[in-house]
Amino acid sequence: MAFTAADVKNLREMTGVGMMDCKKALTETDGDMDKAVEYLREKGLAKAAKKAGRIAAEGVSYALVENGVGALVEVNCETDFCAKSAPFVAFVKDIAKVVADNDPADVDTLMNCKYPGTELTVSETMPEKVMSIGENLQIRRFVRFAENTSVGYVHAGGKIGVLVNLAVEGGVDATEIGKNVAMQIAALNPRFWDKSQVTEDVLAEEKKVALALMDSDPKMASKPAQVKEKIVMGKMNKFYEENCLLQMEFVRGDLFSGTVEQYIADAGKKLGGSVKFLTAVRYQTGEGIEKKEENFAAEVAAQMNQGK
């Protein structure tokens, strides 16, 4: 069965695979469109298997809020160039939608959910995406908030993604409040949300360090124990201000002067309602993934030797 350039174009639009691969698929299947799609799917499986062992430490963290449900996902690829490409970004957004719509328990469950706009599961779609995008792809993690009010924020094209969850009363729109808080979380990455979350172990360690520093200072070492204790307690307040979101100084000084907690309460009151911070999740894309060290000179030398 003969095929035309229009057939190649249609197959590309159906699968997202490159023109040359589509042409080859139609050639191998005598122009049968259905068989060509199946051919590409099988090739995609093989290609995905080959790429599966390659390190995927780049990618995008993306936050979605839709129909009152918030979702934050991190999807990884191999290169920053790929992470910025339209097909990859569209794929990440689709995965966020799968999370929001299906409430999967974990990544394995997510892989068995239907991929948007198709009858295929995410797992069945992945090989095609690997083939069309051209890199190893990994869905790393996600979180979903179905209760209260969620506000998402994506920083630097997906280098950092934040999803904030707020308790809102009075029917007010807390989107701007949530975004400002999310921006602070993205920028400063607090260890704790509130000082009540700081454990006794952490406090004990901080006090120990503070006392050791005083004992190593000749001017402070001779001071009475009760004076040292008072100084340490002052340092603990400083610790809260530097490590706990709600006790931190709100960075948008042009909007409000005070702590983040005070900003949220004041901004909610000005809107005619009440807003309280409940929790948040911050993903920094690729954090904790060991990246492959590229040695370009060695790579070029190896290629030259292969050609001899």
Rank of each mutant, 00 (worst) to 15 (best):
K276A: 14
L246I: 03
T279G: 01
Q306P: 00
E28F: 09
F256I: 05
D34C: 01
P116I: 12
F277W: 05
V75L: 08
G31D: 10
M214T: 12
R54Q: 13
V122D: 01
D80G: 06
G157K: 05
D215C: 03
T15S: 10
M220L: 15
K208E: 15
Q138W: 00
M1Q: 13
G117C: 08
K195M: 09
F3Y: 15
Q184Y: 07
V92T: 11
A96I: 11
G258Q: 13
M214W: 06
D108W: 08
K291Y: 00
E261A: 15
E74L: 05
G158P: 05
K35S: 13
F88I: 02
N180I: 00
E169L: 04
S132V: 14
E241N: 07
V275E: 02
A71F: 07
A46I: 07
V99F: 02
S196A: 15
T4G: 10
P224Y: 09
M214V: 07
G157N: 13
L188A: 13
K291P: 04
K97Q: 13
I95G: 08
F88L: 02
N180W: 01
G134C: 09
M183P: 01
D101H: 02
V202L: 06
E147H: 10
K23V: 02
V181A: 07
G16E: 11
V227R: 06
E66I: 04
E66M: 10
I55Y: 00
S61P: 07
A63V: 00
T149H: 13
K97D: 03
V251F: 15
A2H: 12
A25W: 11
N243T: 05
I231E: 03
M14V: 03
M220T: 04
S257R: 13
A100R: 03
G152T: 02
A280H: 11
V172T: 03
N148V: 07
K51S: 05
A221T: 09
P116W: 04
R252S: 08
A225H: 05
K219D: 14
D94Y: 04
G157Y: 11
L64V: 10
K97F: 06
S123L: 08
T175R: 13
A57W: 05
